[in-house]
């Protein structure tokens, strides 16, 4: 019988599989950090984890709760500062970066600043932090989020972090380096971006989910890949590592 899991566990396990061994990933705390830790314990032991606040390649002993947490530089190769990590991103030495946000549009632009008018916001969020920098400067950005119509919107109230901006060629025209959104992992599916138009495209449906369900939870027209796949559920081994070694306090997986 297939093991039981919650949606947070599913998203973390799926995200971890995209992180190739030997690459560098910039993570925030929470689910992305859990995904990076799980990847290191499964297929990518040489994955380098970087925290924007200055922790470079730590041997993460316990789940940090902020990118400024002292755990982010435990047995690290460096406990550095923001100039060090941001120059690393700017020189194109970071392969993956995880982002989060309150709103995402079809080109993968993200809002983590506010709902409503910027000068008189209805809801204020924390702001960019390093998210805009990662989205601007890293090669492949990834998002893990719950799938809902209020989150996947036609237009972001504020574009905090750049995706493909207005579509193909827009990043280059704005002066941004090559790169952009790579995968969006939700509780319903995995999405990528159409090679030509740079519009969001369903690539893999999670167990028990169909295209209509995903479209029903999305506020814009979603493309569907002609190689639409079915997401492999978490394995027993992935779940054991995640629950016993990555997040025994359930700081992240307990939030599902």
């Amino acid at each position: 019988m297939a093991p039981e899991y919650n949606m947070m566990e599913l998203m973390i396990c799926v995200a971890a599989r995209y992180l190739e061994d030997g690459k560098t990933v910039a993570v925030g705390t929470g689910a992305p950090c859990a995904a990076a830790m799980l990847a290191q314990k499964t297929k990518s032991p040489n994955l380098v984890v970087l925290f924007e606040a200055g922790g470079i390649a730590p041997q993460l002993p316990e789940m940090p709760i902020s990118v400024g947490d002292s755990r982010t530089f435990y047995r690290a190769v460096m406990a550095a500062g923001m100039v060090d990590t941001m120059t690393t991103c700017a020189r194109g030495q970071v392969d993956y970066a995880f982002l989060g946000g309150a709103q995402i549009d079809k080109y993968g632009n993200i809002n983590s600043t506010c709902i409503g008018d910027y000068n008189k916001p209805k809801v204020r969020f924390p702001g960019s932090g390093g998210a805009n920098d990662f989205a601007s400067l890293c090669w492949k950005t990834m998002i893990m989020t719950v799938h809902s119509k209020s989150r996947f919107v036609e237009t972001c109230d504020f574009i905090t972090s750049p995706g493909f901006l207005t579509g193909d060629g827009a990043r280059e025209a704005a002066g941004l380096p090559e790169g952009g959104p790579y995968k969006i992992i939700t509780d319903l599916c995995v999405m990528g971006f159409d090679e030509k138009t740079k519009a969001m495209t369903i690539e893999s449906l999670h167990p028990g989910v169909d295209v209509d369900k995903v479209r029903g939870e999305t506020g814009f027209d979603l493309l569907v890949s002609d190689q639409l796949g079915r997401t492999e559920p978490p394995t027993e081994e992935e779940l054991r590592l995640l629950r016993d070694e990555v997040d025994p306090l359930k700081l992240v997986i307990g939030r599902a």
């Binding site: 920098d133 750049p162 704005a174 941004l176």
Partner: peptide, 14 residues
């Protein structure tokens, strides 16, 4: 800097 080109972080003044 190259950060944030094309985004509201550069375009919206507070």
């Amino acid at each position: 800097s190259k950060s944030g080109l094309g985004t509201d972080v550069l375009q919206q003044e507070g």
